[in-house]
């Protein structure tokens, strides 16, 4: 049962949030091939370890933001707002070693 630190409201229970899948998927430019489009639409890194993902505080401020979470330990290492630069993570000692390539 996760406690997610909403960057707008602070720590809240998992039940208040909605998961939006992996973040940082770039919508392909017009003229993208079927393969490029399929890669954007369906393929995922799905890492075993740290992942950047989108969550929405849907039963709170209703704001989307990004979470850096370890998919093995479920520990949350950072959160950042849409449009903010990806945080530099110095301290990821606790992260799962296997990041799935």
């Amino acid at each position: 049962m996760l406690t997610i630190p909403c960057p707008f409201c602070g720590e809240r229970d998992e039940a208040e949030f909605r998961y939006g899948g992996e973040a940082l998927q770039e919508i392909p430019q017009a003229g993208a091939s079927d393969a490029e489009w399929a890669d954007y639409l369906f393929n995922r890194d799905n890492p075993k370890g740290l992942v950047h993902e989108r969550w929405c505080h849907s039963y709170g401020c209703n704001q989307w933001f990004q979470v850096v979470r370890d998919t093995v330990t479920h520990r949350i290492h950072a959160v950042y707002r849409v449009g903010e630069a990806r945080p530099v993570l110095d301290d990821v000692d606790g992260a799962s070693a296997d990041t799935g390539g």
């Binding site: 909605r18 939006g20 919508i27 929405c56 849907s58 989307w64 849409v82 449009g83």
Partner: peptide
Amino acid sequence: AAWLEEWRQCEYF
């Protein structure tokens, strides 16, 4: 409503 909000915030900001 949630879908529109997601696009507004995440892609069409």
